Simulated scan of single mutants.
Amino acid sequence: MSGAIDSILALQERLKHETKLPLRSVSLTPVATQDLHRLEAAVGALLPPPYLDFVSRHGLLSAVDWQGHDRARMLNPTELLEALQWSRETIEEGCFGDNEDELEAAILEKKLRERLIPFQYVAATNVSDYYYFDTGLRRDTGPLIFPARHDDFELATWLLDEAPDVSGCTFDFDEHLRWVLREGLEEKDWGR
């Protein structure tokens, strides 16, 4: 986990001296132990250990651009639980339409949403676009991490495929944080 925290600390130092960067500030906000315990009790073992370790040791990452807008902000435990509930309740059987194919798509999407955990706003948006952990698709380094828009109702088509294309995603929380910083600095898009 040292790569991401080293990158964050180096960027904080850089921001003290360079004023023409796309980011104005990068900060880490401590999380109260009782809030973290409440989150763990509600979500259980679904949260990846590298995420829990980072949040408990360093806090929640926040990056603000030169206009004062969030470029990346990890959700606090209360926000994470609210976003999780919203993500799961958004998909109702009738939200896709009333014919048989549409009802089937809604059922698959609802099934998929049970395994997704939103944990951070997607850079440059604040409209329920999140980075998610997909707790059903894992590798040794952890669950799949990917961004999704609030109105993306085709995640099941992608992630429930026998061999989904995850080439633009990561299974490494440390790598995710470095990608977020790069994107905030407008050096590269997340995952590219």
Results as ranks from 00 to 15, higher is better:
residue 3 G to V: 02
residue 7 S to W: 01
residue 7 S to Y: 01
residue 9 L to H: 13
residue 9 L to F: 10
residue 9 L to V: 09
residue 10 A to R: 13
residue 12 Q to F: 00
residue 19 T to V: 14
residue 20 K to T: 14
residue 21 L to I: 11
residue 24 R to K: 14
residue 25 S to H: 02
residue 32 A to N: 08
residue 32 A to S: 10
residue 34 Q to N: 05
residue 35 D to E: 05
residue 37 H to A: 12
residue 38 R to H: 12
residue 38 R to E: 08
residue 38 R to D: 08
residue 42 A to V: 00
residue 43 V to M: 03
residue 44 G to R: 14
residue 47 L to I: 01
residue 47 L to W: 03
residue 49 P to I: 00
residue 50 P to W: 07
residue 52 L to E: 00
residue 54 F to H: 10
residue 55 V to K: 15
residue 55 V to D: 14
residue 55 V to F: 09
residue 55 V to N: 11
residue 56 S to G: 05
residue 56 S to E: 04
residue 59 G to W: 15
residue 61 L to T: 09
residue 63 A to F: 00
residue 66 W to L: 15
residue 67 Q to G: 05
residue 72 A to I: 11
residue 72 A to S: 11
residue 76 N to T: 06
residue 80 L to I: 05
residue 80 L to Q: 08
residue 82 E to G: 03
residue 85 Q to A: 12
residue 86 W to L: 05
residue 86 W to E: 12
residue 87 S to M: 07
residue 89 E to W: 04
residue 91 I to N: 04
residue 94 G to D: 14
residue 94 G to H: 14
residue 96 F to P: 04
residue 96 F to W: 04
residue 101 D to M: 04
residue 103 L to H: 11
residue 103 L to R: 15
residue 104 E to P: 01
residue 105 A to P: 00
residue 106 A to S: 08
residue 107 I to K: 15
residue 107 I to N: 08
residue 108 L to T: 05
residue 113 R to N: 13
residue 114 E to V: 02
residue 114 E to G: 09
residue 115 R to T: 11
residue 115 R to M: 06
residue 116 L to P: 00
residue 116 L to R: 10
residue 118 P to M: 14
residue 119 F to P: 02
residue 119 F to E: 07
residue 119 F to N: 05
residue 120 Q to N: 06
residue 121 Y to E: 06
residue 121 Y to N: 14
residue 123 A to L: 07
residue 128 S to Y: 06
residue 128 S to M: 06
residue 130 Y to L: 12
residue 131 Y to R: 02
residue 131 Y to P: 00
residue 133 F to Y: 03
residue 134 D to L: 11
residue 135 T to K: 03
residue 136 G to W: 02
residue 138 R to P: 01
residue 140 D to Y: 06
residue 149 R to A: 14
residue 152 D to Q: 09
residue 161 D to P: 01
residue 161 D to C: 01
residue 162 E to K: 03
residue 164 P to L: 10
residue 167 S to Y: 04
residue 168 G to W: 14
residue 169 C to L: 13
residue 170 T to K: 06
residue 176 H to K: 12
residue 178 R to M: 13
residue 179 W to C: 08
residue 181 L to Q: 01
residue 181 L to S: 02
residue 184 G to K: 10
residue 185 L to T: 00
residue 185 L to Q: 03
residue 190 W to M: 06
residue 190 W to N: 06
residue 190 W to Q: 02
residue 191 G to V: 08
